Computed example of a mutant assay.
Amino acid sequence: MGLTRLAGMSPPAHRLLLVHAHPDDESIGQGATMAKYAAEGRGVTLVTCTAGEMGEILVPELEHLAADREDGLGLHRRGELAEAMRELGVTDHRFLGGFGTYRDSGMKWHDDGHAVAADLVHDNAFWHADLTAAAAHLVEVIREVRPQVLVTYDEFGGYGHPDHIQAHRVAMYAAQLAAVPSYRHDLGEPWEIAKIYWGAMSASRMRAGLRALRESGDTTSFEGMDPDGPLPPFITADENLAAMVDAQEFHPHKMAALAAHRTQITTDGPFFALSNNVGATAWGIEYFRIVKGRPGEVNEDGLETDLFAGVPADH
C-alpha cells in the first residue's frame, strides 16, 4: 500500500524513493540509510524493477529454482525482499509495473572485468523494455508518493549490469516526465523531484577496508582488489562524492537485510567479512553523488549528512 493511500493519515513530511534493479541491490547500496530514515518516520519507498530471476543461487538445496530448471527463483526472491524490508522497517516496496512485469535480463562478464548483457536475453527482460512504457509505470509511483529525493544508479549501473543501466535510464527519464504538467494526466498530478542522487562507494573507505581485510589475513574477500591499486568502476573518487549518511546505528539492520537475501549473499562472504574486520563504518556509512538539486548544509569534509538537506518538508 502506498504512502499516500493510508486512509485518514497524512503522508510523511520527507519522502525518499529508491529505484533498484533486483532484490538485494537495495540492501547492499542503501540499506542503512533506508533503515535510518524509516526509523525517523520519513517515508521510504522502494521500487524494484525485476525479481532477479537470473541470479546465481548460493543455497544448494534451492538450486532447483534456477532459471534453467524450475524457474522459480523470482518468486522465492520476492519473499527474501519482503523479509529484508521487515529488517529495515520499510513498509512501502513495489515491483515496477507490478510483480512479473519485467524479468531479470541476466548478464555475463566482459574480459575487461565489468558486466554486459548475456548472449541470450528473455523476450520479457527488463533490458528489452520500452523506455517510455517502463518510465510511465514509475511516473505513476512518483506522482502518488511525491518524493523530494530520488536515489538510483549511475549511468553505468555501478558495474555494467544491463538491468542496473536500464534502472538508471528509467528512473532518470521518469523523474523528468513526472514533472511535465501536460504528460499523462491519467497518471496523477505532476510532481518535480527536488533532489536526485546516484548511490556511490567511497574510494578512501574501500581502500581502508581492503587494507584491514588483508592485514587480518583475508586474501579472498573482494579477490583481485588491491588496496593500493586501481579500483573497479563502482568505486567513486572521494572528490566526486556529495553526501554521506551516517547510519552506523542501523548497521545491524543492514546486515540482517543482507542475510535475508540468502540465495544471493552468504554470511561468510565479502560483505560480512568487511563488516567483521572494519566494523559498522564499513557498511553503516553510505555515500552519494548529487545529480539534481542544490546541496544543503555540509560537514567539515564538504559532504551533506542528510539527503533532505535544504529541501523544505512537503515541497
Score class of each variant (00 low, 15 high):
233 P>G: 07
133 A>C: 08
157 G>N: 07
233 P>K: 12
141 V>G: 05
254 K>N: 06
146 R>C: 10
207 R>H: 00
206 M>H: 00
249 E>K: 14
219 T>C: 06
252 P>Y: 11
156 F>Y: 11
220 T>I: 10
241 L>S: 05
163 D>P: 07
188 G>W: 08
172 M>P: 02
247 A>F: 05
162 P>A: 00
209 G>R: 03
261 H>E: 02
235 I>V: 15
223 E>F: 12
246 D>A: 02
143 R>P: 06
216 S>L: 12
256 A>I: 11
192 E>G: 14
253 H>D: 14
245 V>H: 01
141 V>K: 05
195 K>W: 07
149 V>M: 00
254 K>W: 06
158 G>V: 05
243 A>P: 09
209 G>P: 03
229 G>I: 14
138 L>C: 00
236 T>E: 03
169 R>Y: 01
152 T>N: 01
246 D>R: 09
161 H>K: 06
197 Y>I: 02
166 Q>E: 07
216 S>Q: 13
198 W>D: 13
131 L>P: 00
134 A>W: 08
234 F>D: 06
233 P>E: 13
173 Y>V: 13
224 G>Y: 02
253 H>Q: 15
163 D>R: 03
182 S>M: 07
166 Q>M: 14
163 D>Y: 02
216 S>F: 13
136 A>F: 00
136 A>R: 15
239 E>G: 04
182 S>G: 07
212 A>C: 04
155 E>G: 11
155 E>R: 14
226 D>H: 09
132 T>K: 13
135 A>G: 11
212 A>G: 07
173 Y>P: 03
171 A>Q: 05
217 G>E: 04
255 M>L: 15
211 R>Q: 10
192 E>C: 12
195 K>C: 02
177 L>P: 05
226 D>T: 10
153 Y>N: 03
243 A>H: 12
132 T>S: 11
138 L>Q: 04
215 E>S: 13
182 S>A: 14
230 P>N: 11
165 I>M: 10
173 Y>E: 14
217 G>N: 06
146 R>E: 13
230 P>T: 07
210 L>C: 09
236 T>M: 04
135 A>D: 09
209 G>E: 01
160 G>D: 01
224 G>V: 10
249 E>S: 06
163 D>Q: 04
261 H>T: 09
241 L>V: 12
186 D>I: 09
254 K>T: 00
249 E>H: 08
233 P>N: 06
254 K>E: 07
241 L>R: 03
260 A>G: 08
186 D>Q: 08
184 R>W: 08
215 E>R: 14
210 L>V: 04
138 L>I: 04
203 A>Y: 12
245 V>I: 11
248 Q>T: 15
183 Y>L: 09
196 I>F: 08
209 G>Q: 06
200 A>W: 03
170 V>S: 07
173 Y>G: 09
199 G>D: 01
201 M>S: 12
180 V>E: 13
258 L>F: 12
247 A>P: 05
164 H>G: 01
140 E>T: 01
249 E>Y: 04
188 G>I: 10
196 I>E: 06
150 L>E: 02
170 V>M: 04
228 D>T: 13
170 V>W: 02
151 V>N: 03
150 L>T: 05
195 K>D: 00
235 I>F: 08
230 P>D: 15
219 T>Q: 15
193 I>C: 08
